[in-house]
Design a protein around this nucleic acid. Sequence first.
DNA 1: TCCATATATTGACATGGTGTCAATTTGATG
DNA 2: CATCAAATTGACACCATGTCAATATATGGA
Lengths: 212, 212
Amino acid sequence: MSYIAARREEEKERRRLEIVEAAEQLYAEHGWDAVTMDQVARRARLSRALLYVYFRDKEDLLFAITERALGELRRRFEAAAGEHELGIDQVSAMGLAYTLFQQERPFQFDACTRYHAHQTHEGAPNEAACAAGGDAVMAVMVRSLQRGIEDGSIRRDIGEPIKICVMLWAFTHGLIQIATTKAQEIARRGIEAGKFMEEGRAKLRELLAPRA
Amino acid sequence: MSYIAARREEEKERRRLEIVEAAEQLYAEHGWDAVTMDQVARRARLSRALLYVYFRDKEDLLFAITERALGELRRRFEAAAGEHELGIDQVSAMGLAYTLFQQERPFQFDACTRYHAHQTHEGAPNEAACAAGGDAVMAVMVRSLQRGIEDGSIRRDIGEPIKICVMLWAFTHGLIQIATTKAQEIARRGIEAGKFMEEGRAKLRELLAPRA
DNA sequence: TCCATATATTGACATGGTGTCAATTTGATG
DNA sequence: CATCAAATTGACACCATGTCAATATATGGA
């Protein structure tokens, strides 16, 4: 019966989710490198060997976590866009949303960092899903960029939206990453982190705004 | 005799350097995660245990590699600055130099990436040296920024040079990182990597240039 | 020259994590 | 109740890390 098969699928999916959530908790608590598959298994109340039925290896599990992180980011970007009319305001809001995302879900931001640093190997089963998640995030941003170009809030000669999108993501991610990992060094120089990122976002906004 | 002691010191230093160079070779060949302390020891023709006399652990060895990478980067920044008169041209040249650094010494750039992603723990002996190396790189850039502000090639209201320096480094690093790790995805969209980074650098230069 | 001492170097070990596999349990089906 | 497939597990082999007691080497003094 396909009824049964469907339920099996659902349960399998739920199990998978339980594993990912257990891994996320531990990730948040100890950082990815310190998380062991054994801990994940115990937290999800199953044997370590079973993890390998659901995920090829630890890296693959990380990709699954990263995909969820990118999904969360996409939702936040969509929400940010929904709160503004002008394209440039939407894009700006995404910059702020990314910052808040880091503050509220540092481990998910860390997953994104690892993903960005990782050379795409097309090795793990969940890597493709991850790439798709990244595309979805960018699609949201590209839409706002195009809107901005149309409504005149973003300079017309800014360039191809997709290219600008990748560029902005790279800039913004770099900014947030440095501001958080090197917070001590920055603070030691009397620079306040919040102000620093606010200024950074302002500078990026300048890039998009039409010449006065 | 201090003659002896001095020679001992020198030999110890040379040994240390041999280890780091062996590690660098393997890093360049296989990537850091795939490098084992055993491989490093064999390449440097000594026992694995001895590595732990010179470096507290693998992470500490990575910090030593990173310090050398930052030294190389500083030299390249200084050379870049030396080829131009205007402050903004010097800073621009550093952006290009960073890109070439990535292309010519990808593993050293990777070391910098890891360093940027790493939360500063003040754990490993070589971590401090690493931070100092980063400061030295920034000092070079700050000097050019100040020069630019003085010679009028950089807007006077750009902000504190040190702050702008951190920001530019973050932006530029993010740009190069994304352009290289996601080269495939970017290319798939018909964007040429070289052009992409060139445009990115141009945009950052716009940020610095005085309002027309 | 030979011993004493410090330093450099190593082999062997304990620990801990990963990924695999054969074996067992579970649960649906006839 | 017997059967079969899927889910689940315990135990294993492997490998890398970091440590330590033991050995080798070189220096300085008697």
